[in-house]
């Protein structure tokens, strides 16, 4: 039996867990290919016009998997991975949207409900309901989850050493250890952005690599320790409702306060609701901290040259300022 996993959304955060899990159960895992212009176009046709780019891309990946003839597509209903917090409504309704808006998908979706108290979502209770459909026993599920959990923890551990999700996903898959992140750098940038925006090379046009080529050390939220991040939000009156948005905002605050971060870039996809608020909060607070902050909003039409020009100008500005301060000192 073939199980499809779309290379979109939380693929970039949980794939090692899910892939290992299904493979240990003896299924063939089919991951959709990289996002292409063609795939986005298909996704756009299958989505309502106003919805955000990541969801349109997701639909494109689902269509690709359906065409590839998989038996099931795994689209977990992401509800909550922290007490009192949720996911964006679109994540919570994702399986419903796919089932009722993509022709031929209705009976092919596996959608366990993910409710957990931590980021580690390898709890047996979440996955047990799939046992009957897949024809596997509880014991098998438990064993497979244990392996999945191991793979995921390893994935997270290496990410925190400063590697990007793409590098680590590659490592987990092929065993090829990524090269050290650059040692010689002139500027350090805190990059705020959801994993599915930053690491989808079509959406962000490989922004991390572009920055590195310019001699920039890039830090992202998933390279930081969860508990440290969480502490950043302790003086907020009311936290945001969305777990990943909180992580992003916490990372943003940390970047603001952290002396070795020279500037912050916020990558956001067109139509992202939570980001519309985060962007404003960051914008208002950046005055207080006096740190350069730039928002890059990307969608399926964004031109590569445009993006390059903007980040080049931003990095040059920061670098010049840095040199000037050094000279004066």
């Amino acid at each position: 039996m073939k199980i499809g996993i779309p290379r979109a959304l939380l693929y970039y955060y949980y794939h090692p867990l899910w892939k290992t899990f299904f493979e240990k159960l003896g299924f063939e895992v089919v991951t959709s290919g990289k996002t292409t212009k063609e795939l986005i176009d298909k996704g756009i046709k299958a989505s309502v016009p106003e919805i955000c780019v990541p969801i349109k891309i997701f639909n494109g990946h689902v269509l690709e998997l359906l065409e590839a003839g998989v038996d099931y597509i795994f689209i977990p209903r992401m509800m909550s991975t922290r007490k009192g917090e949720f996911y964006c409504p679109k994540f919570m309704g994702l399986p419903d949207m796919v089932r009722y808006s993509i022709p031929g998908a209705k009976d092919k979706i596996l959608f366990p409900k993910v409710t957990s108290l931590t980021d580690d979502i390898s709890d047996f209770k979440i996955y047990s309901e799939m046992g009957e459909t897949l024809g596997v026993s509880n014991k098998q599920i438990k064993a497979a989850l244990l392996d999945g959990q191991k793979a995921w923890i390893e994935f997270r551990r290496i990410t925190k050493e400063g590697y990007t999700a793409l590098e680590v996903l590659d490592y987990v898959e092929t065993g090829k250890k990524p090269q050290n992140p650059i040692k010689d750098y002139r500027v350090t940038i805190g990059l705020m952005g959801y994993v599915y925006d930053v690491y989808d090379e079509f959406v962000s046009m490989g922004i991390v690599d572009k920055l590195r080529e310019m001699g920039v050390l890039v830090e992202t939220f998933e390279m930081m320790d969860e508990n440290l991040l969480d502490a950043e939000l302790s003086d907020m009156n009311k936290r945001l409702f969305w777990t990943f948005s909180n992580k992003l905002l916490a990372a943003g605050y940390k970047f603001f306060k952290d002396g070795h971060i020279d500037g912050i870039i916020h990558v956001t996809a067109f139509g992202c609701g939570p980001d519309s608020l985060i962007g404003k909060i960051m914008e208002l607070d950046s005055n207080e901290f006096g740190k350069p902050f730039m928002t890059i909003r990307v969608d399926e039409h964004t031109g590569e040259n445009h993006l390059l020009t903007r980040i080049e100008a931003f990095i040059d500005m920061i670098y010049r300022e840095k040199v000037k301060v050094k000279k004066e000192a």
Partner: peptide, 17 residues
């Protein structure tokens, strides 16, 4: 409202209903 998060989900499903 334009780009309302939850209503976009319902809008996606409405044709089926």
């Amino acid at each position: 409202p334009f780009a309302c998060l939850p209503e976009l989900v319902s809008q996606s499903i409405i044709p089926a209903i």
